[in-house]
Simulated assay, not measured.
Amino acid sequence: MKTLTGSLLSLEFDRSSVTRVRHLVTVSAQEAGLSGIALEDFVLAVHEAVTNAVRYGTPPRGIAMWREPAALVCEVTDKGPGIPDEVLEREEPATRFDFGGRGLWLMNRLAELVVRTGPEGTTIRLCATLA
């Protein structure tokens, strides 16, 4: 893991650091003011984005988190091939027999989600409202 400058959390990650990233996201989100179910939901949504970046994206993979006046924002980026349109357009999760296919669906239910994707990579932005 290579630490980048600025914000609550900013670093590059790989498969070996997913657990450490989840811990850092939890601590940073708590310090920003999230607690209880809101904290758990946000951490799970970010974890899904990080896991997808490791599974489907290519390096460099990065995560940045910062606080805005009424929101906690986290961006997860990778330089992979982008998310296929059929995955982005899916309104229901994959069936229980499919391996995977629930990450974006879950992220969209746990946090405010914005996806920018294309052949140069993907950015997942997740936001949680702060009280």
Score class of each variant (00 low, 15 high):
M1S: 09
G6P: 12
S7W: 07
L8R: 15
L9G: 12
L9C: 10
E12H: 11
E12T: 12
F13R: 02
D14A: 12
S16K: 05
S16A: 08
S17P: 05
V18D: 05
T19Y: 05
T19I: 07
H23W: 12
L24H: 06
E31R: 15
A32Y: 11
L34W: 06
A38R: 15
A38C: 03
F42D: 05
A45G: 02
V46G: 07
A49K: 04
A49V: 02
V50Y: 11
T51D: 10
N52W: 06
A53E: 10
V54M: 06
V54L: 07
R55I: 05
R55F: 05
Y56E: 07
Y56G: 05
G57V: 01
G57R: 09
G57Q: 08
T58E: 15
P60G: 06
R61G: 03
I63S: 07
A64R: 15
W66C: 01
R67T: 14
P69K: 06
P69H: 02
A70L: 00
A71L: 10
L72D: 03
L72S: 05
L72W: 07
V76T: 06
V76C: 00
T77R: 13
K79E: 11
G80Y: 07
P81E: 03
G82N: 04
G82Y: 04
G82K: 00
I83F: 00
D85S: 12
V87H: 08
L88G: 02
E89R: 14
E92C: 12
T95S: 15
F97M: 10
F97L: 13
F99K: 12
G100L: 01
G101K: 05
R102Y: 11
R102N: 11
R102V: 13
G103L: 02
G103W: 02
L106V: 05
L106Y: 08
L106Q: 05
R109P: 02
R109L: 12
R109W: 10
L110I: 05
L110E: 04
E112G: 04
E112M: 01
V114F: 12
V115W: 08
R116E: 15
G118E: 09
P119T: 08
P119I: 04
T123G: 07
I124Q: 07
L126D: 06
C127R: 14
A128W: 03
L130C: 01
L130H: 02
A131Y: 10
